[in-house]
Design a binder for these strands. Structure first.
Lengths: 408, 408
DNA sequence: GCCGTTTTGTTCACCCGAACAACAATTACG
DNA sequence: CGTAATTGTTGTTCGGGTGAACAAAACGGC
């Protein structure tokens, strides 16, 4: 629910300032610390202009002047560093999993200030989960400096999230349908701040693209193995959403017409071959092991033979994805990452067998650079997004001293 | 090879003018004729600004003042119309098919000034085909006013085209590999102007999005049935390309593990079920009928039973596409359009059976609004693209009086 | 048929923001 | 220690979008 569609509009002159200010902040957010000279070359603007923008961000309380980071060697005056203020803006990131919820306060720059988590009951009602999440948020905001403005809340959902309003259309593993979870959490908190929701795979892709294994890579796919299987797709540096926001449901691509029934009602979806339940079955792990499948797989020192067909199926499915999207990188998250480390040979062979040579030659399969935090940090990213589109407006709408507001 | 990646750059102030001038021209190109008042609201700029931009385009010889188009009723001074100059810029569009090449001179606004076509020998060498295309281009430019500047050449290719340099990596039905066809055509012409190449499905999608069935629809997929099967994908109003430019090869998504061998080396690709050869086989049409399959299918008044499985396979494959991309519209081009009109029931049923409900509810399957010209007009669009990015630069690099240059 | 209303084109001064140039600051290197 | 190189700082210039005022052109009611 991020990308605004402004096709055909002209560029207003105040929009120039907004855009430049936001872009500069985006750079600082991405690098954490960088020099004004680097900003000058990265943004292609004049020194004076960068100086003005940096000064404005300083007045806004977002950045501060840092010691000259000696990244460059050679003659010349060292460039003054720009880094993030200690009491700068932050967001709440929520990773709603199948069996647990993780909540974190994340500062600009991507640092996790504090995190908390709690189990989520299987089949819990949305309002119960919302109350639990609200409780975690209350915990998490206590440590944040009171003067830090809270920009918004980003929530990752293992299911289909409608673009625009963030309604959860279907979350099979939570057994939710048409739940307005953002509203529920806000009501439980008694606050009114921007809430963004998105699919977990989409957020994993976003985080890996911005601060994980895919930095600098504009065509990237993150495949989430989180009981179900979904893909987050970034093409040309922007997220693929689709009209409704449901793009990337690669788990329900037909894979085997003679396969097993899928919970979606069809037969032989890819998820029935590489989903957590299928793999747990293959290694005769108890059904409950499917939810913790990542850990179960990590425990293996060597791959049992029973996993090899799943590896091949993963490779074949990846080939479909490579043919469809021609990505430069495919990141395997959740249990698929664990599976990949075990049966890498089968996966690579399956991919090479079925992908078109031209598309295969430029793709890399890898593990998440952010480990298990990809999705959580992606949730932080969408919450920050308005700040990069219009810093001034986003900050004027942000709340300060949230800790005491929530305590009182 | 169109979309330039400028992520992270700041907005230069001269870039504002470029962008606004290009955007205005894009509007005029799209609508053909529209009033300055409409431009003002569409672009969100001031009346004065629009006036300045329109004046500049007039000086450039691109637009001319038109009679007040009375689109609005009511009081008030009628708004002056902006329409395209008679001797304005134009491009050469080339649709390279499996058995024939179509070449057209296309004016700004999308009008085909003149077209010519010639058969292409099966298995012809690239330089032979290039010479034939050059001959058609010579024919086509004769009618164009000498003062009209030729902006560039756009070429549609039934195969994989590398982004950036436009190299044809693989065109199975032409039996070409790694052919620099743009260079070949330019050499045959003895000219040096910008040439853009792209995959036929991508161009079909572009044309349908801009002037066909998908005007105003930002998430659209065009599926080309042109012996092989490929998809052109537009998401969020921009073309999905992938790192190398090979995205959208949906014809080689695995469809049936027990299916027939595909020319790509795999088994059971979707193309082996809905490609022209498969369908020609099904209706016992001679092998040569595959190339003209569209016409063969059009001749049927009612669908023979033998086509029904192909219809179902088409529906199933569309479901995969809908799940992957969540488009708002799917346009079926080439023989797939003809097939759809015959076995629509099977296609719709197959799609409904396998697509996720959330994604299914917002998708429409339809036929091309531009008929058989989608791809040709798409080739014109990519040739025009530089003009909308920077009108002044594109015009300064354009050639005038091409007719006599090529004749002499 | 006239006059007020409405909408738009036209012109001008204005403002904002990026670019540019000159100078100062600061370091590396010989 | 002096020179070259790079960057921050400052004041000025320049370009382009904005806004106000006025003119133009059509409609509608009287």
């Amino acid at each position: 629910m991020s990308q605004q569609r402004t096709a055909g509009l002209g560029t207003n002159q105040e929009a120039v300032r907004r855009h430049n200010l936001g872009t500069l902040l985006r750079h600082v957010h991405g690098a954490g610390q960088l020099s004004r000279a680097e900003l000058t070359t990265a943004m292609g603007l004049n020194r004076s202009t960068i100086a003005g923008l940096v000064a404005e961000l300083g007045v806004l309380g977002v950045t501060r002047r840092a010691v000259p980071a000696s990244s460059r060697t050679g003659a010349g005056r060292p460039s003054a560093g720009v880094s993030l203020a200690h009491d700068g803006p932050y967001v709440i990131a929520v990773d709603l999993g199948v069996d647990r919820a993780v909540v974190a306060a994340v500062a600009l720059g991507g640092d996790v200030l504090r995190r908390a988590q709690a189990p989520v009951d299987d089949g819990g009602e949305a309002w119960q989960v919302g109350a639990a999440v609200a409780g975690l948020i209350r915990q998490v905001v206590t440590d944040v400096p009171a003067s830090s403005p809270l920009v918004g809340i980003g929530i990752s959902v293992p299911g289909l999230v409608r673009r625009g309003d963030g309604l959860i259309r279907m979350a099979p593993n939570l057994e939710w349908t048409d739940v307005s979870f953002g509203g529920i959490v806000l009501a439980a908190l008694g606050l009114d701040i921007p809430v963004s929701l998105a699919n977990d795979a989409n957020l994993g892709a976003l985080a890996e693209h911005r601060r994980g294994a895919g930095v600098g890579i504009d065509d990237l796919i993150y495949i989430s193995g989180n009981v179900g299987v979904g893909a987050g797709v970034i093409v040309g540096g922007v997220q693929l959403e689709g009209v409704g926001g449901y793009a990337g449901e690669m788990g329900h691509i037909s894979f085997n017409p003679n396969g097993l029934p899928c919970h979606c009602g069809n037969i032989g979806c890819w998820e029935t071959e590489v989903g957590a339940y299928a793999i747990a079955d293959a290694i005769s792990s108890p059904e409950s092991g499917a939810i913790q499948l990542g850990e179960v797989l990590e425990a293996f020192a060597e791959a049992p033979a029973a996993l090899r067909p799943a590896g091949t199926a993963l490779g074949y499915g990846l080939a479909n994805i490579v043919n469809a999207f021609n990505p430069q990188m495919v990141v395997l998250g959740g249990h698929l990452g664990s599976l990949y480390t075990l049966v890498r040979a089968q996966v690579d062979a399956g991919l090479a067998a079925r992908a078109l040579p031209a598309a295969l030659e430029s793709v890399t399969v890898c593990l998440p650079g952010l480990g298990a935090d990809s999705v959580l940090l992606g949730a932080a990213e969408i919450a920050f997004e308005p700040l990069f589109v219009d810093p001034v407006a986003a900050l004027s709408g942000a709340l300060v001293d949230v800790g005491s507001r929530l305590a009182g």
